[in-house]
Design a protein around this nucleic acid. Structure first.
Ligand SMILES: [Mn+2]
Ligand SMILES: [Mn+2]
Ligand SMILES: [Zn+2]
Ligand SMILES: [Zn+2]
Lengths: 141, 141
DNA sequence: AAATTTGTTTAGAGAAGTTCTAAACTGTTG
DNA sequence: CAACAGTTTAGAACTTCTCTAAACAAATTT
């Protein structure tokens, strides 16, 4: 039985690139598709580099970094900093929070609704809130 | 008029070192006093190194790192990760949260009371909550 | 108070993650 | 199909942090 690849809606992603003034290069398209197909997940630059290599996509690590930052600025990804030494990127750009497993160095999503913040202080004058990050650091019992 | 140095309660800090099985070396005592005198603040290893140098305390950077981690494990400091590339340490070990100024790369405290979390999800089975970090990322208008 | 032991500091090397550089390349525009 | 502007790349460079092993200092024993 031939396996039928479900077609994914890549068009919106490519539109997003165009909007951001980014040319649809072979590398960006391949990475956008990889990320699109991956579903909600958290990964480092090195991990994406490895994943691209595994998928037969030849991209330099410098391009991985460039692309991750460009996609982040274009609103296609979110950067999360939870442990010193490396950044994580998140394909889930909806409003949500994270568990961080200190032992394994892994993130998992918490739906936005599952964290109810009843009150927050005003941001200092002259500033506006960019984002509120809640990280629940957990460790094995 | 001679300036009179107010005596600080360094004793509890030195006791804490002893409890943690850490010898009261010249370097640890000097750093503990610097931190104690600084009041609530957030700083990187390099910043503490510079501050020690400015105060005439000669300590290697390796010792700064060792000491920061030892003090953190002894509960005298808290490590905060908000930006890729470097860790911040916090002399305020009470329960509290942070504003992070993205432009300047600086942290400021939010009293624990000023963030009211009405509900949090259960930690995944097999894990316990170590800490809940709330970071309000702000940027200049 | 010397000798011994154990823990600590240090300079410098090394590791890891990320950014920079400048040359080759590719997408776009006229 | 030029010409141009943006992109990719290998490799060097940079930053932060850790490791190594030798010198050193505090604690303990004699
Ligand atoms: Mn970034
Ligand atoms: Mn640490
Ligand atoms: Zn997420
Ligand atoms: Zn703080």
């Amino acid at each position: 039985m031939a396996s039928i690849q479900k077609s994914r809606p890549y068009a919106p992603v490519l539109d997003r690139l165009k909007q951001a003034g980014l040319r649809p290069t072979r590398q960006r398209i391949a990475l956008a598709k990889l990320l699109c197909d991956a579903g909600d997940c958290h990964f480092t630059a090195e991990q994406l580099h490895a994943k691209a290599a595994a998928a037969g996509v030849r991209v330099s690590l410098a391009t991985i970094y460039n692309t991750l930052h460009q996609f982040t600025h274009a609103g296609l990804l979110r950067e999360i900093v939870v442990s010193p030494g490396s950044s994580y990127f998140d394909t889930n750009i909806s409003d949500h929070h994270h568990f961080f497993f200190e032992g394994r160095g892994e993130l998992s999503d918490i739906a936005g609704d599952d964290v109810v913040i009843a009150s927050l202080p005003q941001p200092p004058s002259g500033t506006t809130v960019d984002r509120v990050d809640v990280v629940i650091r957990v460790k094995n019992i």
